[in-house]
Amino acid sequence: MSIITVQIVAAALIGIGLYGALSQQSFVMLMMGLELILNGVMLAAVGFWAYSGTGIPEGQLLTIVVMAVMAIEMALGFALVVAVYRGKQADMTEALEGFKH
């Protein structure tokens, strides 16, 4: 376990999450991709904190902020799903073509 291996695991999580966020049609699966990206970001932040930050507490604070971002993303995402479902009876991103303009 070194900073390189930890960052490679984080990079893999971010890559998989990016694939999911770009490719999934269902809103909830898309949000899972975003969650996976944030998962990798948190792991990378903790890795830097442990190996090259001399243990400064701001490194952990960054992870707490990312956790808050995660909760906000989840709540707002589900509210948007509910709002779109109520308006369009749809749970797929393709249903939002009309919102482009």
Binding site: I3, I4, Q7, I8, A10, A11, A12, I14, G15, I16, G17, L18, Y19, L22, F48, W49, A50, Y51, S52, G53, T54, G55
Partner: peptide, 24 residues
């Protein structure tokens, strides 16, 4: 896009020059 992101970030991890300052 996912594969490119993985390799780019891994390259940063492998070739990056991070300070070796572990937590006490």
């Amino acid at each position: 896009a996912g594969v490119v992101a993985f390799f780019a970030l891994s390259a940063v991890a492998v070739f990056g020059d991070f300070p070796d300052q572990p937590r006490p």
